[in-house]
Design a protein around this nucleic acid. Structure first.
Lengths: 206, 206
DNA sequence: CAAATTGTTATATCATGATATAATTTATTG
DNA sequence: CAATAAATTATATCATGATATAACAATTTG
């Protein structure tokens, strides 16, 4: 990781500077949008440079999205939520939702860009699955008979369910106020099928 | 329904003609995209007309998306899948996936547009929930203790889960070949938490 | 240090989505 | 049928994303 030439270091810094400028612009006007001309000016580079660095506007938005998922993961591991799988997953949901709602308009714009072609699809997806796999952990609280199936399926199902919520959220079909409950409800629905039978009633009471 | 002035009828026909032209163009080139200038030419109207009729390119794409969900519902009610809630839901998943995969490139483009602002958010969402509610039906096969909760939650959870799958699909993180199994797996995950206990083993074997 | 590679700037160009305006055609209403 | 209302056309304009090219600056390599 430390093996970077001066050129690579500068390139990395320049890319970070562009992303920082993009976030500043997204924050600035209420529209949560920026033009590439504004971006170049804000970053103090030529109009062509962001294209050279990222290839497209969509790729820039995807890089911003990767930053957001990084933030979720960081917070999850910092918090190191106590308890079993259920509480860890619900904690991860809270963290993920909180990150999204800290700057709703900006994050809507960022998540929206995920559906777009132009960049490598794998990175963001893997990043996100890793978070849910960490929340699942060793699966304590899961029905022992289903331990294997659950470990295989639950992290991916959580990723899909959360993405579904975000998808409705960016379409304004779920409001900011509704997102916490909706996201929690989908996570609980996923867990409900795999949890120890004596925990099911608890889950439904949530 | 029959109370339409000539003007309204013509307007409706013109809108349909524009949407047909859009589908034709999406089918035509491999890119699954169209410019508003192409669209106007293909529909045989002026460049400004589609804007007057729909307001924006995104609104046109959303109208196309509404057509697709209509198609899913039509096929579901035509098929009138026999059996209990489980088999109806799995049938609805098959139908929905089949519709999407009949013209994957086009439908990816159409679904992509759903995340966008500019039109009424409610219509597509309600349309989609109605399909899943129909598939849930009276909830036969659902654990009687959970009947009420299930009727409240399952249709919405199915809608969210399916949307999550589509969201990964349009981002090329789920391939066409994987979509059927992934969509089925998410639906099964949702059902697993609410189904009669003697059906759970069956569900997991799927 | 000199040569080669690479990134950036400056600039010009293109296709496009969106909007505005006046003129024309079409439908409704009395 | 005439007058009014409304949608469509034709046209011009603007901001924007994207691309290409030549000139310039910096880093790397030998």
């Amino acid at each position: 990781m430390g093996e970077m030439s001066v050129r690579e270091q500068k390139r990395t810094l320049a890319r970070e500077a562009v992303l920082d400028a993009a976030e500043r612009l997204l924050r600035a006007d209420g529209a949560a949008a920026f033009s590439m001309r504004e971006l170049a000016a804000e970053a103090g580079v030529s109009f062509a440079t962001p294209f050279n660095q990222f290839g497209s506007k969509a790729a820039i938005a995807q890089a911003l999205s990767a930053r957001r998922i990084d933030l979720m993961s960081e917070r999850f591991f910092e918090t190191a939520p106590p308890g079993d799988t259920i509480s860890r997953v619900l904690a991860a949901v809270s963290i993920a939702v909180a990150v999204m709602l800290e700057e709703p308009q900006i994050n809507r714009a960022i998540i929206r860009s995920l559906g777009f072609p132009g960049a490598k699809p794998s990175e963001v997806s893997a990043q996100s699955r890793a978070l849910w796999a960490a929340a699942f952990g060793d699966g304590d609280g899961i029905d022992p008979d289903l331990a294997k199936v659950a470990a295989e399926r639950v992290p991916e199902q959580l990723a899909i369910a959360f993405r579904g919520c975000l998808s409705f959220w960016i379409a304004d079909e779920i409001t900011d106020a509704q997102l916490p409950e909706k996201a929690q409800a989908t996570a609980i629905t996923v867990l409900l099928g795999f949890v120890e039978s004596n925990r099911r009633a608890d889950l439904l009471r949530w």
